[in-house]
Design a protein around this nucleic acid. Structure first.
Lengths: 356, 356
DNA sequence: CTGAAAGCGCTTACAG
DNA sequence: CTGAAAGCGCTTACAG
């Protein structure tokens, strides 16, 4: 703890420079610079060797700040973190950071506190100050005119309305699948507990829920706006009048579903016997809850990589990348224990309008 | 979507420099630089005004890269993200990033993949390349000789053995409190399902569990090493022989506790009637699970701020900061529904050795 | 395949 | 209170 003079007394005080390496190798510093640029490609083998040993002897590492200054590229991207009740973004973040690294970028984190305007201000500031070459937001960026920014801003699909053509449609498909499945099981009267509507995914699931109800001639007792929390699921069910007729609930997330299950228990309703519940996310708790929550698996890692891939492409001026090949496997219904046949099991649907 | 020529055709292509501002204000660029350094303090009011309007007219913002190059300070700190089954670090991260920002630092994120050695390598690389002035790790950094690094490395308490004097002791106290409480309820035979032992907090809870069992003359049926997952809790209980005598389980986390509850249900044991379970973390699911999990609340935001505060102090060469004043409120037992009186309720403990 | 020159945008002594 | 000079460590044309 207090023994100090073990190794060098504080490490070499001064770092070597490119010029030091050049001198030691008996070359000009440009040649060494070139070594880094082309990874030793166009150099004579002997030159390359000399440079490499000089680097090793001096324990040299390029000063990236100086490089940035000269190239006017920072190689840095910013990620705007979500605040509030975020859907555990760890896997997403790790995957995004990893892809960035693979592509030679470094990732900066911007914490989110305060309101949308404040957050926006900070993002644009980062971009304007020449700190970062692009921004990936894992928060809704309401009202941000992304074209007004000097660098590309990509908003993760969960939060982005412009992504309707990609992920959001996929989301929608899955929401429709859930209702269809539940209807096939014999349920006719539904309730949807939505997520925080600032999230695109919440708006989407809500919209598709209603569309599917209409399309299949089912009944929606209603839609309760929530915030992804178990509390919101709990409150929604506690507030359900006796005789509402609801036999199936589509919860916007597993977290919400857990709240639903507890409220049902409190009201003496058995899940799934009296009430079927479907969640979304496939959190680990879904498998171990009693009853285990029927849900939707999502691949957050894939999402993270893809979001970052879009940003990298934008920064490089490349065309928007296609979705990952395995995209279709991202959202998948997982039927566990919280959904069971409903009162109209075995009977045909009231009407089934062909999907357009 | 395709209407483009709304504002400027692509924004001003070239950013103004300090020199531009100086020229426009009719001053030398040093004076403008000074304006930024002292925030206009030592300047004539007229000069200051001239500078300020020039800045406004030119929409000037200092180039932070150039500044870093000159000052040899980057103002950047790195956070090493946890991989695997992390304990939802969002609040922690946001709080840490926020404190860093308040202190004038910017925060870089390093994704974690691969093993400890790889991760370590990347951290040291970041530091050595002069990219960051300090590193905060939210992962265990096994085997890292932090003194060998050219910049301060702080490991979040959850993962840091050197923090024994601070958080870990608090952790220990809380673990002891749980066992004492359960013993007071009439339990005598316990099982502990530990977290991933790479985490200091897992090792600590484990150690204090055993110490407390011994001190109070209780019986530990055993300790099962886990990984913070519900699965590990589930497996531990499924593997428990009939007649083990265990009536209370101390799970390393709520997640583990959920797995325990499900396994108990599968084996036909009622929680808490046949088996008491105590978790740790106070995740939202703890309140809404059936039964609600008795647990320990932790303040991850406070932890995040404190960890970053330690790093900032280290970077500035200031003494290690004291813990937050409200530290005592960080860990608090929350008794919910998963623990109930045991077979020896009302009877005195076998022996109670005075705590030293 | 390698070297001499210029400069990225700023700050820090040093004068006055 | 303000200005002229030097330089942080690198890369990018431009020669040879």
């Amino acid at each position: 703890m207090s023994v100090e003079s073990q190794g060098a007394p504080g490490r070499t005080p001064k770092r070597s420079t490119l010029l030091d390496v050049a001198r030691r190798a008996g070359l000009s510093h440009q040649t060494v610079s070139r070594y880094y640029r082309d990874n030793g490609e166009g150099l004579k083998a002997a030159t390359k060797t000399r440079i490499e040993s000089a680097i090793a002897e001096l324990d040299y590492r390029p000063n990236l700040i100086a490089r940035s200054m000269r190239t006017r590229r920072t190689g840095r991207l910013a990620i705007v973190l979500p605040g509030g009740r975020a859907l555990h973004p760890t896997e997403f973040l790790n995957a995004a950071a990893e892809l960035a690294r693979e592509e030679g970028f470094t990732v900066e984190m911007v914490g989110y506190d305060g309101d949308a305007a404040e957050r926006l201000g900070r993002v644009l500031e980062l971009a304007d100050w020449g700190q970062v070459e692009g921004v990936l937001s894992i928060s809704p960026l309401d009202g941000v005119d992304r074209r007004a920014s000097s660098v590309p801003i990509v908003v993760a699909p969960e939060y982005d309305d412009d992504m309707r053509a990609l992920r959001n449609l996929a989301d929608g498909d899955t929401a429709a699948e859930i209702i269809e499945h539940l209807a096939g099981l014999g349920h006719r009267t539904f309730l949807h507990i939505a997520g925080d509507l600032r999230w695109t995914s919440a708006r989407n699931r809500r919209r598709v829920y209603q569309e599917t109800i209409d399309r299949l001639g089912l009944t929606s007792y209603g839609i309760v706006d929530g915030d992804w929390s178990a509390q919101s699921g709990f409150d929604a069910v506690m507030g359900l009048p006796v005789g509402s007729g609801v036999t199936a609930i589509f919860a916007a997330s597993d977290q919400v579903a857990v709240g639903v299950v507890r409220a049902a228990w409190r009201r003496g309703w058995k899940v799934p016997d009296d009430l079927s519940v479907w969640g979304w996310d496939d959190q680990e708790l879904s498998r171990f809850a009693v009853p285990a929550i029927s849900t939707v698996t999502v691949d957050r890692e894939l999402e993270g990589r893809f979001a970052m891939r879009r940003l990298v492409a934008a920064v490089r001026g490349e065309p928007e990348p296609l979705e990952e090949p395995s995209r279709k496997t991202v959202n998948r219904l997982v039927d566990r224990e919280s959904a069971a046949p409903g009162p109209f099991a075995g009977q045909p649907l009231p009407r089934r309008r062909s999907a357009r």
